[in-house]
């Protein structure tokens, strides 16, 4: 009676021209069934995140009785499990605002930006932005940066594995060509900037060390994972900007020149060894051969 079109829509199938009348009736009935079926899914799903909506038509409990509580189990499951997923992805934020506040905040976020695919370790990319625009938290501007850093950490945790290039990879390049080399970063690598002391907040709420340079304000933290554990390294501002230019594909020469023009004290060889030691680069090549 039904067949599926290439685009996946199930359509009623009209057959046998001799029984046109009966088939036309069948076709109309089938269309009505399909419409009713789709309406059922729309109603059932709309009510899940909207508790003021009634129990969907045709949805019943024991003995055919309409039951708020039973439909409510699905509502609770959906909301509670999505809030739990956010709490798992943003544990420092959960600690900082406390359980009850986090659950209320996360519920607002879920209603505004429900997930659009089933992998929940990838749910929450808009959470930092949402917090930035959430007026009750306007007096806590560092929370947005905590969320940004937790999202970057999660990305590094699940990124493709790469142990970084050999520490002597640069020594294999003709010194004359060094100025023209370009780097690619390992998949698990990103930089987070904040006007606040993020490293301190991180260490207090996630029990993980941040190494390197940690000023009280204006921090730059390199988040990368050349091994199993995510590493967090505070970078001096000039080193961070240098890394960012290299990540963006500028040559070593271009990046060094640009950062030197911004910072008088920029030390190229120290910056380079810091990044090489972090094993944040996957490969290096001279631009000509690249």
């Amino acid at each position: 009676m039904f067949k599926q079109r290439k685009d996946g829509v199930v359509m009623p199938q009209v057959s046998d021209s001799k029984q046109e009348n009966r088939d036309l009736k069948g076709y109309v009935t089938a269309l009505r069934d399909l419409g009713g079926n789709l309406r059922g899914y729309v109603e059932f799903s709309q009510g899940l995140l909207e508790p003021s909506l009634p129990v969907p038509n045709g949805v019943v409990g024991r003995d055919g009785a309409v039951s708020q509580m039973r439909y409510g189990v699905y509502r609770n499951n959906v909301m509670a499990s999505l809030i739990d997923a956010l709490a798992a992805n943003f544990p420092a934020l959960h600690n900082l605002v406390g359980r009850d506040y986090f659950r209320a905040l996360a519920a607002e976020f879920v209603r505004a930006h429900p997930p659009e695919q089933p992998v929940l370790s990838e749910f929450g990319d808009k959470f930092s932005e949402f917090i930035a625009g959430f007026s009750p938290l306007a007096n806590y501007p560092y929370l947005k940066d905590v969320a940004t850093m937790e999202w970057a950490w999660l990305g590094a945790y699940h990124s493709a594995d790469h142990e970084g290039m050999a520490v002597d990879a640069l020594s294999k390049i003709d010194p004359e060509l060094l100025g023209d080399v370009v780097f690619t970063a390992i998949p698990a690598s990103s930089l987070v900037y904040s006007p606040f002391a993020l490293s301190e907040i991180w260490e207090q709420n996630r029990s993980e060390k941040v190494t390197g340079v940690m000023p009280k304000t204006n921090q730059a933290i390199l988040i990368c994972r050349p091994d199993m554990d995510v590493t967090l390294i505070g970078l001096a501002q000039d080193v961070a900007e240098f890394a960012e230019l290299l990540f963006a594909g500028e040559t070593l020469g271009e990046a060094a020149e640009e950062v030197s023009s911004r910072f008088d004290t920029f030390d190229l060889s120290a910056a380079l060894s810091c990044l090489l030691a972090a094993r944040v680069f996957a490969s290096v090549s001279d631009k000509a051969s690249a």
């Binding site: 009676m1 039904f2 599926q4 199930v10 069934d33 399909l34 079926n37 059922g40 899914y41 729309v42 059932f44 799903s45 899940l48 045709g58 699905y74 499951n77 959906v78 499990s81 999505l82 997923a85 429900p114 997930p115 659009e116 695919q117 089933p118 929940l120």
Partner: peptide, 21 residues
């Protein structure tokens, strides 16, 4: 999942000819 939204729960369906298909 319905439309673009993922609900993260195992939601029930009616058992009809349409849903069977």
């Amino acid at each position: 999942t319905h439309d673009t939204q993922y609900y993260n729960d195992l939601l029930p369906l009616p058992y009809t000819d349409v849903t069977l298909q």
